[in-house]
Design a protein around this nucleic acid. Sequence first.
RNA 1: GGUGGGUUGGCGGAGAGGUUACGCACCGGAUUGCAAAUCCGUGAAGACCGGUUCGAUUCCGGUACCCACCUCCA
Length: 469
Amino acid sequence: MVRIRLTNTRTRRKEEMTPIDASNVRLYLCGPTVYDRAHLGNARPVLVFDVLVRLLRHVYGAEAVTYVRNFTDVDDKINAEAQRRKAAGSPLSLEQLIAERTEETIGWYHDDMDAIGAGRPDHEPRATAYVGQMIEMISDLIAKGHAYAAEGHVLFDVRSFPNYGKLSGRSVDDMIAGARVEVAPFKRDPMDFVLWKPSTDDLPGWDSPWGRGRPGWHIECSAMSAALLGPSFDIHGGGIDLQFPHHENEIAQSCCAHPQASFANIWLHNEMLQVEGKKMSKSLGNFFTVRDLLDKGVPGEVIRFVMLSTHYRKPMDWTEAKAREADATLRRWRGLVAGIEPAPSPAPAVLEALADDLNTAGAIAAMHDLAAQGDAAGLLASAGLLGLLLPGMGDWAEAGDEAAVLIEALLTARAEARQARDFARADAIRDGFAAAGVEVKDTPQGPEWSLAPGFDADALSKLAADLGA
RNA sequence: GGUGGGUUGGCGGAGAGGUUACGCACCGGAUUGCAAAUCCGUGAAGACCGGUUCGAUUCCGGUACCCACCUCCA
């Protein structure tokens, strides 16, 4: 059995992972708020968890893993977009407009995450489908003395949970001292956070013991993880920016509601993605979406490779140069494994790297070794653990039939020219290939070709026409 | 102000208290009609100052700088 070690944010050390139930390893990842396209940073935890799930399924069995990732479809930004459409004259009701917006966003999200090769989780619960469970949990927290109703709100009483702040290494008193938040007058303590808040008539709302309202942001993950994974499960993750307050608040809610349970044993947090050394953020306005990159012609597999080439606990800078390098490496590897059956199991060095706190960069280095040794079968089997070189994701690296016919014809023409020692013509074809983005390798078995990143089909057609080939 | 993370060769980026990371780029050689690709090989590092140690880039302390979180954000 492979020993999987993960850095647990909760304990701040690398720990061997021991599942609560090896026949059902359970994970929860905080998913997106579905109000707009996923930006590139959203893809990072998804890919980290995708590799983690692939590893866990390899070690514990394909059926022995339950992966949950939620959709947050209750949110002021979604409401704002629906209200904007209403104001723009849409005949639909606000509820319908909200549903329309979240449906289309979820569709985009699926398209974009599929494109980078991220497998769908086993469950993708939507917050709106679990409001009943949230109300139940909030009532329970009030009954247990951990929450209180005030002016249509329900607030969590942070002073009732001595461990509050432990995950993020803060004390309530320190946070109050440095707080920049406006404190609502009905809060008992400035750090108390909202479990339920009132809705006006122009906002979505649900009936509750505290009047018509909607849930606070944090309670959904506590309610949905309990419903789908139980009060104790193995791994909970997300971006490091969620550590506080979101995950801290989840812990407070869940541990107070289920005092006998452990909630998440291991917390995994990925570092932020940066662009040109700066955090990618909505407020800075320097973010771009996964779709932007795909539309620019950056293949999903390349995005995936770049993301995985930096360890998840380190900040990763997205650069064009990395995308180019990844593109070239993947083309080379795809050439190497073409028509090859994968080995029965991944290479030990790759598996060991991933088992050691998801060292994807180390795993990729080990794959380079396999490639250098010519172990195509081992490379292919290992790449699968990282979700790379999979069938169905390699179309970008392949030429269409039309281009293939042209290239073959030109190669024949070049061979004839060389035979005739017409090197001027042979070199013209060679240079034309290079200009069009076709790489030709002459091997003892004859020429092999592949497409380079800047492949230009028009230039290829023109070359063929000019040379009459 | 509080909290957390980082600083590795030209660039990217890992592991390990003592032995080549790896990739890209560069340089030399083989190969080639010339190239490309490939193969072989060389060179190149650990922010700074102390400490522990036979030995530290790796552990400990400090300094500097960078980044993030504390506010919607993965």
